[in-house]
Design a protein around this nucleic acid. Structure first.
Lengths: 269, 269
DNA sequence: CGCGATTTTGAGCACCTTCAATCCGTGTGG
DNA sequence: CCACACGGATTGAAGGTGCTCAAAATCGCG
């Protein structure tokens, strides 16, 4: 494979795109997206898809690989805001001004590149697309809220368990190659720590704890969930959880502190 | 004012709506919103605008008062996800299934009620509206991310300072009656605690700390910021901050841990 | 094989929590 | 008008969860 002539493939055109149906693109016809996109971008592990503070004029639709949204404080503390898997979209929340967070490739990432202004223009003519976009952002917002309550109100063990459960569910539903009880998890413990608001050292101890409890196995970039129910319990769920999709997880009854009742119907004027 | 005949006022119709220009509604003409809305809802302090786990078929546009988004864990721990001020919109992130968070009035709240399906229908014909919606959600998502890094990576003192700074900026820009260096802050210390991921007791100590440092005054529902720069510094900003709008704050150079460079341009196919 | 990055483990400390008591401001009823 | 109750704010003391510092072990890779 040295001096061989490489055939020019229009790599990953929309028609043959494996994730077309599972992301933003499904809201419109193949032709439209085909015209909007300018190409595919490949990013090597550790480098930014777009840096914090920089401007980013493109939307990126994740095609393969893992990335993360992060925010750095000025003294180096890092918070990982979200892990991005195939089908996730980056870059729309950077309208005006400079956003406070960046995106970084964890594994080798390939992403579909769509200039934002071009996309917005198209969305003006195809409201379906605009609404799909807002639904997508709303889902991401909901996930951000879940992370917030996790980091704000769960114990270290619960946070780690919750994160693993989330990633397990998301990866399993997105990446078909993964088997039923395990996924490939290309994260370092520092990634997990920065997403959970913990130190790497303490994250390690929590992982050991979960491992010794027979709940998970985690080594060589693979996470095996030996007992999903126990993992859910460790994450703080007392009753059932719907595994396949976590982001909009089914809520479970019982409001411990909800002394107040809904008063829908008090519409006056 | 006992048996007097009360004139029927179409209270807060869109034309005279004080916040029309500062929220979602500005994306369309007065008439449209006038048709979409079904009324104004008033909610008394402490009761839910919509409860966690319940379904919510309406959008609410905050007209006056303070509310908060919250999530309860099953054992009663509460995380406040966001404080809602006039102009903020609630309820779109509850498409299908039941959302994991609810909204509660802190003061008496009045909100413009818009049935979601009706709104979506209208948005299909007015892409501007749909795009405005997505921009709005994206802004909320960005705020959620800021809260996440705050709770995950800042110290208790920094968190409290950051929250006060954010609320100060938002309230001052939204609620015109507030003067330059102070706002009315109708929160209990428990609210601040639940938003910061702290206990009320420790929140109290941090507030005392900030007070004794001459940075703030906080009593009887009013927050006075005696020294904005010191407050920003206490929140963890080493250099300048743009006060008027915090959500998309201007980013400040210097990536402590960013050893990686952006590689925009690696577009291949 | 040797180097760097990551994981693992230990020991001590500190930040924040928990528990508990007191104080204060406001509203309510006698 | 005062006593009382109640929610919220305040303070103290003690304990624990998670952090810091440090060193060793392991893994990945050229």
């Amino acid at each position: 494979m040295s001096a061989q002539i490489k055939p020019i493939v229009r790599s990953l055109a929309c028609q043959s795109c494996p994730i077309r149906e599972h992301t933003l693109c499904s809201a419109t016809d193949v032709r439209t997206m085909e015209c909007l996109r300018t190409g595919t971008r490949h990013v090597t592990p550790g480098v930014d898809v777009f840096p914090q503070g920089g401007d980013c004029t493109n939307l990126y639709i994740m095609l393969s690989g893992w990335a993360c949204l992060y925010e750095l404080l000025e003294d180096g503390r890092r918070q990982i805001l979200q892990f991005l898997l195939p089908g996730d979209v980056l870059g729309f929340n950077r309208h005006d001004g400079v956003a406070t967070f960046g995106a970084q490739a964890i594994t080798t990432v390939s992403a579909c590149v769509v200039p934002r202004d071009r996309f917005m223009e198209a969305a003006l003519k195809r409201p379906q697309l605009a609404l799909e976009l807002s639904a997508l952002i709303a889902a991401q917002e909901a996930m951000a809220y879940e992370h917030l309550t996790s980091v704000g109100r769960r114990t270290a063990r619960e946070r780690v368990a919750y994160l693993l459960l989330e990633l397990f569910c998301r990866a399993r539903s997105r990446i078909p190659s993964d088997s039923l009880d395990q996924i490939t998890l290309p994260l370092t413990q520092s990634h997990i720590a920065d997403a959970s608001g913990l130190t790497p050292v303490h994250t390690n101890r929590m992982l050991r704890n979960l491992r010794e409890a027979g709940i998970i196995e985690l080594n060589q970039r693979t996470l095996r969930v030996r007992n999903p129910d126990l993992l859910a319990a460790a994450a703080g769920f007392e009753r059932e959880v719907t595994l396949p999709y976590l982001p909009h997880r089914r809520w479970i009854l019982g409001h411990a502190r909800a002394k107040d009742v809904d008063n829908d119907g008090m519409v006056t004027a």
